[in-house]
Each structure stands twice: as C-alpha cells, then as structure tokens.
C-alpha cells in the first residue's frame, strides 16, 4: 500500500512537471531555445491566481482562467520583445537572454510582492480515501485534469491545422513559409500554449504546496527541464512521460530513501541521461544540417 501511495503522489507532482516540461519541449522544438524564463511563468501564474483570489476575492474558476490568459499573453510578449529580434543570432545569445528574462521576472515579483512567502489557499479542498490511505482532492484533480489536458494537446498537435503547422515549422521553418504558413503566428501560438500549460501547472502546484515566493519557479522549472531532457527535448510524449517519471522517482526517493535526497536524485537522473543517452527517451538523433 505504501508503494501505491507513493506512486499516486509521484503521479501528482509528475503531472505538474509534465505540464511544465511540455512548454520547454514545444518551445525548444520550434525555436531551438531552452526557454529558461519558462519556470518563472509558473511563479507569475501562482502570484496572479493568489492576488486575484485574495485581493479581489475572485471566484477560483475566474482567477484561474484569467491567470491562464495572462500567462499566455506574457509568454507571447516575451517571445516578441526578447527572443524574436535574436532569431537569426546564435543560440548562446538567446540562452543568455532567456536567463535575463528569468531574473527580470523574479525581481519584478519581489518588487511587487516582496520576498516574503505568501500563502495560497487550496482550491480543491476535501479528500477521498482509497483503501486506508487518504488522498487530497488536489492530488486526484491534478492527475485527472493533467491527463485530460495532455490527451487534448496530443489531439491538437496531431490533427488540427495549427498543430500540423507547429510540427512543420519545428522541422523546417523555411519550407514551412513556402507552404504559406505564417511562422511568427505559429511561434506565438506555441509560446501561448506552453505558458498557458505552465499556468495550469502553477495552480495545481500551489494547491498542494501552499507557499508562493518570487523564486519558486527556478527549482520547479529546472526539474521540469530535467523531465523534458529525460523524455527527449522537443518530443511531446517525451515531456509527458519524462515528467511522470521524475515525479515518481522523487516520490519513491522520499518514501524509501530520504526526502533530503530528492533533488540529488532528480539531477542525478539528468547527469545519467546526458552521459548515456543525451537525446532522451523519445528524442530524435540530432543531425547537423549541411
């Protein structure tokens, strides 16, 4: 029973990693950028939901919807303002810019809300019992909703016009333009989608771990990034499976080894993946273009 309990808890945090990892992977697929500001979108999402609910006493559904929209818009703006002008420059400039945006977001949040942690009230109160164990509704809702979102996302990318355009652009953006695909719109859409998913992840995260603070996105984002690398950066099924694996690994470490070692295990996984199979579980081998 302990194992089942740990697995379910692992799936819960893993679903959150998966939602965030999808953003990393989709953006990497389309602009070949590790968007290090992605983790901080989670933080923005957390503050936005908290602010709307505590200051304006907005109902939860409204606060969450507004947050998703706001984070999507923020993601698009970041791309337009910071990344788009650098699209033709080398990868390193983009990466440094992404780190800069990350620091900017953290510091703006600190300025607006101070560095003191705030308490987020769980939206999904109550619990269900499975066997003799109790699971909070936050856990079950997180897992269920994340699975539904991932299924919908898979359908979107596989079957819709925009989804196919995303795949075409990520494979060959020059040829995609020749097909009449507006690459800028496709990139914006990808950033909006990724940031929206991060916002959802933020809400789920805060419902289980109630503290929010300006730097909360760094560690969460970093772990989701490890998940994306484990799955194979650029691969969407990879991000989903990678996220769940990291969550379960964390939970099992907490349960059977020591909760102080969870971070070590997660980053240990990163090192092992990079040593043994840098392209990850579902990643494509990178062929240099000639």
């Amino acid at each position: 029973m302990t194992l089942v309990y740990l697995m379910i808890n692992g799936l819960q945090i893993g679903s959150i990693y998966a939602l965030v990892a999808l953003g990393y992977s989709m953006v990497y697929g389309i602009v070949k950028l590790i968007n290090f500001a992605h983790g901080d979108i989670i933080m923005v999402g957390a503050y936005s939901t908290w602010y709307l609910m505590s200051r304006f006493s907005a109902p939860a559904w409204l606060a969450v919807t507004a947050t998703i929209v706001m984070c999507s818009v923020l993601g698009v703006l970041i791309e337009k303002i910071a990344y788009k002008p650098l699209r033709k420059s080398d990868r390193l400039s983009l990466l440094v810019t992404a780190i800069g945006i990350s620091l900017l977001l953290q510091n703006v949040a600190q300025l607006l809300f101070s560095a003191n942690p705030r308490m987020f009230t769980n939206i999904f109160t109550g619990s269900v019992s499975i066997g003799e164990r109790q699971f909070s509704n936050a856990t079950t809702v997180t897992i269920a909703v994340s699975i539904v979102i991932m299924l919908l996302l898979t359908l979107l990318v596989k079957h819709t016009r925009m989804g196919k355009a995303m795949r075409a652009v990520s494979e060959d953006y020059e040829t995609a333009q020749l097909m009449g695909i507006n690459v800028n719109n496709t990139i914006s859409f990808t950033f909006a989608l990724g940031s929206g998913l991060a916002a959802v992840g933020a809400v789920f995260y805060c419902c289980s771990y109630s503290q929010i603070q300006p730097t909360m996105g760094s560690m969460l984002g970093l772990k989701a990034f490890v998940a994306a690398v484990l799955g194979g950066i650029g691969s969407m099924p990879g991000a989903m499976i990678g996220g769940l694996c990291i969550g379960i690994a964390e939970s099992l470490t907490k349960g059977y080894i020591s909760s102080q070692l969870t971070d070590a295990v997660v980053f240990g996984i990163l090192i092992v993946v990079l040593l043994i199979k840098p392209s990850g579980m579902f990643g494509r081998r990178m062929n240099e273009k000639v």
Binding site: R161, R167, A168, D172, T175, M179, R284
Partner: peptide, 18 residues
C-alpha cells in the same frame, strides 16, 4: 525539403495550408 516526420498525406495538407 519534405517534412520528414509528417506523413505523406500531411505533407500534402501542408502544401494546401492556405
């Protein structure tokens, strides 16, 4: 420059994107 990861039919659909 076909889209290698897409199916043959999806490639054609991309050609008719507009």
């Amino acid at each position: 420059r076909i889209f290698q990861q897409l199916t043959v039919e999806e490639n054609l659909e991309m050609g008719g994107y507009i």
